[in-house]
């Protein structure tokens, strides 16, 4: 082929997640800060913030899954909380009812949740857009119904006494140990999610999100890609659910409701749908908001009952979603990128 323009030859660097020495430094700094954080919190007697961090890490894992199904592959899912629920219940049943060890139950529970995702994806083979959203919603209710009506899941009482894991003889019991375990899982999930965006499958997801018909002409089997998107998304959700169940040692039906599905979508949109970093940002932003509201409510500064705090959270989350969709549809991550670009151009303005 004749060469006319310029082709890049340094794309090996372009391909790396962490491109430069400065970038490495930033990542190392961030990770060591995250590692120091729990000790600082313990030192300053802010252990409820550690619990908050742990739930945030769990939510990040769950929402990363939704970001794959909905953000990347464009399959609107209102049923993501059902996969988290399925993962939690699967771990509960295997450990409590069948007596499996945690590390044996975790992968199986995750995989089972993934298979549930696969099944939920089947109606999506023939449907598009909203119809997919509604079928996932329907599956959410069906999974709830099944869990409520079969005996092994403990019905409406749920399962209690789910064991905690051991890592090299160390019992993961305290919040601080859970923090490190969850941090490792979370970083691995983020890596997997980023890897997906630079692999053929991730691009196939983007292609079917943008245009199913044209994607087929790239040789992508649209149906299979959709099933895979649901499968991977549910894997992440199931992993989060299983860890969640072990962390709080109980699993109950009202732990994961349809509202959680909605919040997951909201976090994804506020962060920036389709972007891994954005998703993480979105989760942190919404979780932080609710924690701050909660702290205000319980501090007694403003007379708010716990119920009122919850209702206020609903309203504020709703407003946040509406504002972002209306004015910043690409989310926090786009705002951050713009800020970065402006900083580089300084002082020449926007």
């Amino acid at each position: 082929m004749r060469r006319r323009g310029k082709s890049r030859t340094d794309f090996v660097r372009d391909l790396a997640i962490i491109g430069s020495g400065r970038h490495w430094l930033a990542v190392a700094l961030a990770l060591s800060l995250l590692a120091l954080l729990p000790f600082v919190l313990r030192w300053t007697h802010n252990l409820n913030w550690l619990t908050f961090l742990n739930f945030t890490l769990l939510t990040v894992i769950a929402v990363l899954g939704l970001n794959i199904t909905t953000g990347m592959a464009g399959q609107l899912s209102l049923g993501h909380a059902a996969f988290v629920l399925a993962g939690g219940y699967a771990l509960g049943v295997f450990t409590v009812k069948l007596g499996w060890p945690f590390w044996g139950a975790l992968p199986v529970a995750t995989l089972l949740s993934g298979i549930a995702g696969f099944l939920v994806g089947i109606p999506a083979l023939r449907l598009r857009g909203f119809y997919v959203a509604v079928t996932t919603l329907a599956f959410f209710y069906i999974i709830q119904f099944v869990v409520r009506n079969i005996e092994i899941t403990g019905g409406i009482h749920g399962l209690i006494g789910i064991p905690y894991p051991y890592v090299g003889g160390l019992a993961i019991k305290s919040d601080i140990r859970w923090y490190f375990l969850l941090l490792v899982f979370c970083v691995l999930c983020i890596l997997a999610s980023v890897n997906l965006t630079r692999s053929r499958l991730g691009r196939a997801f983007l292609a079917i999100r943008d245009n199913e018909d044209a994607a087929a002409n790239l040789g992508i089997s649209v149906g299979l890609a959709k099933l895979r998107a649901f499968f991977i998304g549910a894997l992440f959700g199931g992993l989060a659910g299983a860890l969640w169940a072990s962390y709080v040692s109980v699993v109950k039906l009202d732990q994961f409701t349809i509202w959680d599905s909605i919040w997951y979508l909201g976090m994804m949109v506020i962060g920036g749908a389709g972007s891994t970093a954005g998703t993480v940002l979105g989760v942190i932003a919404l979780r932080l908001t609710s924690q701050v509201l909660h702290s205000i409510g319980s501090s007694g500064l403003i007379p708010l009952s716990s119920n009122l705090t919850i209702y206020m959270t609903y309203a504020i989350f709703g407003i946040a979603i509406i504002l972002f969709i209306s004015f910043r549809p690409f989310g926090l991550i786009a705002m951050w990128q713009k800020l970065k670009a402006n900083y580089k151009r300084w002082p020449f303005g926007t």
Partner: peptide, 19 residues
């Protein structure tokens, strides 16, 4: 976008009605 907007509205209305 309109789908997500309606979800946001759902949460907003729910919270407001309950408040």
């Amino acid at each position: 976008a309109s789908f997500m907007l309606s979800l946001g509205l759902l949460a907003l209305l729910h919270g407001t009605i309950m408040l």
